[in-house]
Design a protein around this nucleic acid. Structure first.
Lengths: 210, 210
DNA sequence: ATACAGAGAATGAATGGTCATTCAGTGGGG
DNA sequence: CCCCACTGAATGACCATTCATTCTCTGTAT
């Protein structure tokens, strides 16, 4: 972010012929890898270019600027996750089982792509505040899934009625998020998804009627 | 971070006569305010100087560089919180009540200083990864409090024995942390500490034997 | 009381390095 | 031959940090 960002250029104009090459994807992957290693602000666009084996300028054929590179990477991953999660959860009717499955998916997704996990845990919050509410919309979607399951569980009499839906959802997400952060900061790379059940047990137990 | 950071200068040499002036504190406060507003990387040292009503160069009489400014601000606040928390918790014997009180202190501290909350939520994770483990030590301290309470609760037969102490602590912290994040991103500035009990209820309920 | 010297504190303009971004030019496929 | 994707060197901002200079005390001497 070197200048006052004119911000309003028409749009990125990726190649028409894009399907032929995989540069777009290589750049995105390179960006995630580099940003995970050094952090967004400490990474140079030329680092990403090098990692993706393209020229510096090529990146600007696909992305308006460095910021959009980050946002696109995050958005793409988020979209993929949400679509997967939505589909899977639809097939489950029990609210507690929905939450359990969501926890597994959440942790598994990050375990499967550690660089992405690092970028999410380290850069997403900042982005949420400074790069506009792009990610916020996604968060709202995610929370929507959680809150729906909680509401359902309440109306089925499984979860306590006095539970405050929004707070409960925050606890659920916060707990998972913290598991990921703690895993990311830990070098050992243990099987993250293994803790999903333990976390879910605590939370569900907390939500459930005695 | 403009150059390869020689890193090893002797140390900052704040004035001997410092008690007379409040520049040091003004700079720290200004830094928190400015960093909260624009983010660490988007803030200029001269912004902080202006906010603190000192010259740019003056900041370097008190801090080695911009990074140290952030770290000192965070450390100072963290130290103050931990010392307060430790004292308070010592006076409580019931493990669940310890956790309940800790949650209140945690949320109240951030409610009392929103800028600090913003800086913590937005910058701390990055720092944890790139500005060395300085903050990590603090986190370990904090988690130490939580884990001790959980262990105690287990040995007293209040909390479930099969609870995994570390995971439970992560859930507890994560839930609180998420409450703060959500409060920070929300414009309305509701009374954050009011949710402490609701959060604690869920978690304690989750920890407790049926 | 006044003057003065010395020391540290404070100042802010100038420096130097770093990069994001641009764009004139290259080359290969159709 | 034309079109475009692609290239990468050059440009232009931007800003952390430095340092020569000025200011402000404090104590001492007259």
């Amino acid at each position: 972010m070197k200048k006052a960002s004119p911000k309003k250029q028409p749009a990125k104009i990726p190649a028409r012929t894009r399907a032929l090459g995989d540069k777009y994807q290589r750049i995105l992957d390179g960006a995630v890898a580099v940003f995970a290693e050094k952090g967004f602000h400490n990474s140079r666009v030329s680092d990403v270019a090098e990692r993706a084996a393209v020229a510096d300028g090529t990146i600007y054929l696909y992305f308006r600027n460095k910021e959009e590179l980050l946002m696109t990477a995050i958005n793409t991953a988020f979209d993929a996750f949400m679509s997967r999660a939505r589909t899977e959860l639809e097939a489950i009717s029990s609210p507690p089982e929905k939450l359990r499955r969501l926890a597994q998916l959440h942790l598994q997704a990050f375990h499967d792509n550690r660089s992405l996990a690092v970028v999410f845990q380290m850069e997403l919050r900042q982005s949420a505040r400074f790069l506009a509410p792009f990610s916020h919309d996604h968060m709202v979607e995610y929370f929507g899934l959680v809150r729906a399951a909680i509401r359902e569980g309440q109306s089925q009499g499984i979860f306590r009625a006095e539970l405050r839906e929004k707070i409960a959802a925050n606890c659920f997400f916060g707990a998972l998020d913290e598991m990921v952060t703690s895993w990311v900061l830990d070098e050992t790379n243990y099987q993250l998804a293994d803790v999903a059940d333990a976390v879910t047990d605590i939370l569900l137990n907390g939500f459930t009627k005695k």
